Simulated assay, not measured.
Amino acid sequence: MILLTGVTGTVGRLVAERLATDEPVRLLSRDPRRIAALAGPRTEAVGGDFADPSSLAAALTGVRAAFLVTSDPLTPAHDEHFVAAARSAGVRHVVKLSARAVAEPDATDLITRWQRDNEELLRASGIEWTFLRPRAFMSNTLGWARAVRDEGVVRTVNGASRNATVDPRDIADTAVLSLTGTGHAGRAYPLTGPAAISSADQVAVLAALLERPLRCEDMTRDQAYQGLLARYPSPVADALMESAVRQRSGAKAGVEPTVETLLGRAAGAYRAWAHDHIQAFRPV
């Protein structure tokens, strides 16, 4: 049996939709009703919470491999609980969604340190592991959709700096391969798109597809920070600002061949992702 976590999120849901296997599949969510549509003849939705070790123990019973997605760097106990329950249940392989910055010594922000600790936790557990280390998701630009629809303006920090952003569908396909194939244990996969692209370039792509003018405006550092504080606790906002400074220095522009090597096809480009999601940016 394969267990998937994070199925209400971007990558986890794509993994659930793309996982084709003869094995039974179990989907974990705090509220199984939210993922009921993903259930099927060999796929069950079960309740469980990273904060509740007993619920994890029940969900992991009989599981061979698991896809682990956690999202809160302020609650490291979530990974600790999951790994302990997986070890006790005899899970043989965990595929962990991590981050590209983990392998970069100059990345010292809170989120990167948290992911490094998560990886070390799995390494020390005795469970076979695979780490997926993506750059920023192309789908993050969906956060611009309302501003694009209503104003025709995208406000960013460091709009000219480049990031080798990755299509979440490529991450999901790599996760499926790692969960169902052989030879992936003990491997860490850096995942990027085929080219580094700036926010300004992404806005230009959206403008061309929408056939309307869009403007990319740089925010000041303080404006960007205040925007982050409106959405995140201050330690997380601080970490995201540190990450933005690294991007401005060019630290996130490197392109990796991993997607093409593993999947036998080119990594998805931003224009293709934007084309497939352009309706989100059109005026209602």
Rank of each mutant, 00 (worst) to 15 (best):
residue 202 Q to H: 02
residue 161 S to L: 02
residue 187 R to D: 01
residue 223 Q to W: 04
residue 199 S to H: 15
residue 211 E to A: 14
residue 237 A to W: 09
residue 272 A to I: 11
residue 245 V to E: 10
residue 262 L to P: 12
residue 138 M to Q: 15
residue 239 A to L: 11
residue 154 V to D: 04
residue 269 A to Y: 01
residue 56 L to C: 05
residue 191 L to S: 06
residue 178 S to G: 04
residue 159 G to N: 06
residue 104 E to M: 13
residue 73 P to K: 02
residue 25 V to E: 13
residue 192 T to I: 03
residue 282 R to N: 03
residue 76 P to E: 06
residue 11 V to T: 05
residue 257 P to N: 10
residue 256 E to H: 15
residue 26 R to F: 13
residue 162 R to G: 00
residue 279 Q to D: 15
residue 93 H to S: 00
residue 245 V to M: 09
residue 284 V to S: 12
residue 276 D to P: 00
residue 132 L to V: 03
residue 87 R to H: 11
residue 209 L to W: 07
residue 22 D to V: 08
residue 179 L to G: 11
residue 247 Q to F: 07
residue 108 T to E: 14
residue 231 R to T: 14
residue 11 V to P: 02
residue 275 H to D: 14
residue 151 E to A: 10
residue 85 A to C: 03
residue 87 R to G: 05
residue 74 L to A: 13
residue 237 A to H: 07
residue 89 A to K: 11
residue 91 V to I: 06
residue 168 P to I: 04
residue 238 D to M: 13
residue 16 A to S: 11
residue 263 L to F: 04
residue 174 T to N: 07
residue 251 A to T: 11
residue 261 T to I: 08
residue 128 E to K: 02
residue 221 R to Q: 14
residue 245 V to L: 05
residue 198 S to D: 01
residue 219 M to F: 01
residue 82 F to H: 06
residue 245 V to T: 05
residue 46 V to G: 04
residue 70 T to R: 05
residue 88 S to T: 13
residue 257 P to Q: 14
residue 121 L to A: 08
residue 107 A to K: 07
residue 200 A to N: 15
residue 22 D to M: 03
residue 174 T to A: 13
residue 232 Y to P: 02
residue 137 F to A: 07
residue 220 T to K: 08
residue 132 L to I: 10
residue 40 G to N: 15
residue 200 A to M: 10
residue 179 L to R: 15
residue 100 R to L: 08
residue 3 L to T: 15
residue 184 H to P: 04
residue 158 N to E: 11
residue 214 L to V: 03
residue 175 A to E: 02
residue 28 L to W: 05
residue 146 R to C: 01
residue 105 P to E: 12
residue 158 N to D: 09
residue 111 I to T: 13
residue 200 A to Q: 15
residue 207 A to T: 09
residue 121 L to E: 09
residue 88 S to V: 12
residue 255 V to S: 06
residue 61 T to H: 12
residue 241 M to V: 09
residue 193 G to R: 07
residue 112 T to R: 03
residue 32 P to Q: 05
residue 257 P to T: 08
residue 197 I to E: 15
residue 62 G to H: 14
residue 251 A to R: 12
residue 197 I to Y: 05
residue 91 V to P: 01
residue 281 F to K: 13
residue 22 D to L: 05
residue 19 L to V: 10
residue 30 R to N: 04
residue 175 A to P: 00
residue 220 T to I: 09
residue 76 P to M: 00
residue 71 S to V: 15
residue 103 A to T: 13
residue 135 R to W: 02
residue 226 Q to N: 12
residue 73 P to R: 07
residue 177 L to H: 08
